[in-house]
Write a protein that binds this DNA or RNA. Structure first.
Lengths: 336, 336
DNA sequence: CTGTTAGCGCGTTCAG
DNA sequence: CTGAACGCGCTAACAG
């Protein structure tokens, strides 16, 4: 055996005094004479043998690497990391490892990541697509790599998707505000290049109808920008009596502005997407919650079924959202 | 060429009308006749060729896979995911991909993950160790795989470590409370099996000296358990005038208890580890902050230097913590 | 059931 | 400079 570098099957075979294929069989659980099995396992243990996944997948007929690629917006983002964890949990039961990367919403970075993952010959891909037309995604699809888009619609036709009912969630919350008596409702959303932001806006328009343009702020991307947008919105007269913010960081920035203006107990406020400690603010923040873990779990299960040979038409799973009334969304308009 | 499955170097060579080795040279940037280079690149583009990382690393002399393994407590935990992102950012500049997994503090799961990562022949490992003696870690070390332990001390002698100054951070915060006049200080910490929990406790003891046993609660693992522990601590007389909680979820649970008891504006409270929205609670929560991203960045840089051949003795980097005064820790004791 | 042999796709000799 | 031959560690097909 070589003592620099790891032991190989050949080393194990030599030490156990059996053929190479017998070692392969034992290691892979193919029935073999129990006596030989013992000798092989002993030799393997003695040498600290671990089989080489790269060589295995190179030789196997199906070329499986037991690895799936996961392209997220940002692995450090709570939404993304909850999704990541759910994918990991499903994968681990099948012996799949996850290669995760962050696109930061940049199409170039997304392409690069997908390229590297393709080079790694991952068995499948789960992607939160930036939405830009993406040759790598299309190429991976043509290569026959199963791909599931999650959280957002696919930029490439024919891919499985798992998304939340963004539109319906916002529309429902707006209707609830309307039922409370609110007629003047403001709206703050993220970059319109994002499918989710467009969907949430569509839900708002669907339920709120036409409103003053100054009360609808789109392409707001950071908590700080949301703080400014909301400050402006409520500095001018007339101001809305209720506010819907379409992303969790925007919700936090908006709340900060409302506190600064002394309006946080006066203006009704509902955010899209739940966040930690939302219930510990004063008043607690009502939200339209989606379940990132469930999005990830469903995407992973869908991918597994494709890996198992399911060749049915592309699935489009839509998961419901859930309104969580905590207080901030239940404030009535003035004079009611 | 094969149309099912991807194009190989052979396919590219055939299409370009050159030898296999020439394609290899062009793809790997070894100088080649510019005319041939063009033909090869054209053919590669035309076939959507991507070189196969598995085959590459199998054949290369150094066996590099350009992959590093990252074993975290939980990829979905904000601390872990911030660290993950920092590792990714350092790695991406070197073309390294990250295989991340969650140990959930379970030694068995940790061992299994490390085993799989070893099978993948990752170039290096960054691990938040559970602390249990771990044969896989030791074996990987013996194999010559560079390993950096981060956030916690290494269970295996001779590994590089990057940790925060847990002990000094807590001791400093306790001294600040003492300077404010506090003499009766409670303490709540996580499982004593965790190195960080033991260090933070040591820092508390070092600065606070002997206190009533009922005011020191260890092995408290969840926000809910912290809520109960703090409720009990302040239900009995005498109760402390200040409280230090040694982990962010425990801090949140403790604050919940203080609010329920109506003591959140009366009892001084300092938490270890910052968390989102700590500044938006009332009163804002003072914390001993560590920088998970910096921990990850330093660990990754240390790993890279090992990959570059640094064979110096094991490094033990300790990063300072930073006290963030927001209000809750600046409440004086009654009658002062 | 076991052993032998031939490649998987690529990098790296070695001749030309 | 280029191309042919070899082998990395393993599995699949075959022969015994």
């Amino acid at each position: 055996m070589s003592d620099r570098g790891r032991a190989t099957m050949k080393d194990v075979a030599a030490l156990a005094g059996v053929g190479l294929a017998t070692v392969s069989r034992v290691i892979n659980g193919v029935p073999v004479d129990p006596h030989l099995t013992g000798r092989v396992l002993d030799a393997a243990r003695q040498l600290g043998y671990r089989k080489d996944t790269a060589a295995t997948s190179l030789r196997r007929a199906d070329r499986r690497t037991n690895t799936i690629g996961l392209v997220l917006q940002d692995v450090a983002n709570p939404f993304s990391s909850a999704l990541h964890r759910a994918v990991e949990d499903v994968g681990v039961q099948r012996g799949l490892l996850v290669l995760a990367g962050s696109s930061d919403e940049e199409p170039d970075r997304e392409r690069e990541l997908l390229g590297v993952l393709r080079t790694r010959r991952v068995d499948g891909l789960i992607v939160v697509p930036t939405g830009a037309p993406d040759g790598e995604l299309a190429a991976a699809h043509r290569d026959g790599t199963p791909i599931v888009c999650v959280d957002r619609a696919s930029p490439v036709p024919g891919l499985d998707t798992v998304t939340a009912d963004n539109r319906g969630g916002v529309a429902g919350a707006v209707r609830a505000l309307h039922d409370l008596g609110h007629r003047d409702i403001g709206f703050v959303a993220d970059h319109s290049s994002l499918w989710t932001a467009r969907e949430r806006h569509a839900g708002f328009v669907q339920a709120a109808g036409a409103t003053r343009p100054a009360w609808v702020r789109r392409d707001v991307h950071t908590a700080e920008a949301a703080r400014q947008a909301v400050t402006e919105m409520f500095a001018a007269a007339p101001a809305p009596t209720a506010l819907v913010t379409a992303q969790n960081w925007l919700t936090v920035g908006a709340r900060r502005a409302l506190v600064e203006l002394g309006l946080h107990r006066t203006v009704a406020h509902v955010g899209f997407d739940d966040f930690p400690l939302a219930d510990m603010l004063d008043p607690p923040v009502s939200v339209i919650a989606q379940d990132p873990a469930e999005l990830g779990r469903r995407a992973a299960l869908l991918l597994l079924s494709r890996l198992d040979g399911d060749t049915g038409p592309a699935a489009a799973v839509t998961l419901p959202t859930r309104y969580i009334a905590r207080g901030s969304g239940e404030i009535p308009p003035p004079g009611r």
